[in-house]
Simulated assay, not measured.
Amino acid sequence: MKNILLLLSVFFLNQFSGQQKISVWKKGEMPNSKGLKLNIIEEKEGRITQIPEAELFTFLPAKEERKPMAIIVIPGGGYRHLTYDLGGYSYAKWLNTLGISAFVLNYRLPTSPDLMQKEIGPLQDIQAAIKLIRKNAAQYGISPDKIGVLGTSAGGHLAAMVSNISTDYTELKGDWEAISTVPNFAILVSPVIDLGEFAHKGSRDNLLGENASAQMISEYSMQNKVTAKTPPTILFHAQNDNAVPVINSILYYEAMIKNKVKGALFVFPKGEHSIGIFNKTELTDNWKKVCADWLGNMGN
């Protein structure tokens, strides 16, 4: 009886919160696949190392509090695993307190044995997710032209990729082709940007392979892809980040300045590679207020 009551409670909680799981790809439409039947592998709680296909998890504020803006949260994990809880759900729940709808994306990792071209697998998934949310914006009570991305660590690299690579890799046809894959704005938290001198080696090796050419490294170093068409972007980083050096965010922001891209960069003296919803210092914790104010100025 207790188990039945628990299941009913979870069911009604999901019904009223609006949270649901959505497959990004319809059956037979997922590109770049060998057709392998993979299982979800979770190495430990909160960290997935393999998924068969991309999934979105919705976090919707109450309709009375819901603003037109929505954000796709892209978890990090060095392109080896997905920190979907700490680097996904926690950000989504915080965004809900601002009245912003959030969608957490669990994307195919480039280490997946099912991918034929590993480096574009994650990009295909975030591009398709943006199209899917834009197409169904009315259903969620949001605006299709106020869809942003929030990426942390390697998820920040993926957020920068989808912000700067306008080529549509989804292979979706029909009315899908007219829907843009580029977000309207981006939030990058401790992002991997450079895959060369200042790279997070694990992210680079997992995305491009251990013997990536200089050309590939340059192509996937996102400071080299910024143009005047890059959407407004705000970056947060800690000076004492020993995993992803702060120069990553600095290089991206310098490219933004050169190309007159609207945005901002905030570097905190402490925070390491752990800037998130709960932070070790009050100063670093201010990133949330700064971010909320910036989003407010974006017209949410």
Rank of each mutant, 00 (worst) to 15 (best):
N14K: 15
A238G: 08
Q117I: 11
H273D: 14
N286R: 15
K118G: 02
D145K: 12
V149E: 03
Y79P: 01
K135D: 00
N297F: 14
S9G: 15
G299T: 04
M116W: 00
K27Y: 05
V246E: 11
K288R: 14
Q127L: 01
T284P: 12
M161G: 03
L38I: 08
I74M: 12
Q50S: 01
G78R: 03
P269C: 07
N286F: 06
A228D: 04
G209A: 12
I147H: 03
I275C: 10
M116K: 15
S221G: 09
I51G: 05
G78C: 06
V24Q: 07
P144T: 11
A186C: 15
V189N: 10
W294I: 07
Q139E: 14
Q223F: 10
P31F: 09
T170A: 04
R80W: 03
S221L: 10
D145I: 14
A102L: 03
N39P: 03
D145A: 07
A102F: 11
F198D: 09
T170I: 02
I247Y: 01
I193N: 05
Q139Y: 15
I130E: 12
R108M: 04
L13P: 06
L295R: 14
A255C: 03
E64T: 05
T284K: 04
M116S: 07
V73G: 09
R204H: 04
N106H: 12
Y89D: 02
G209K: 03
L295N: 05
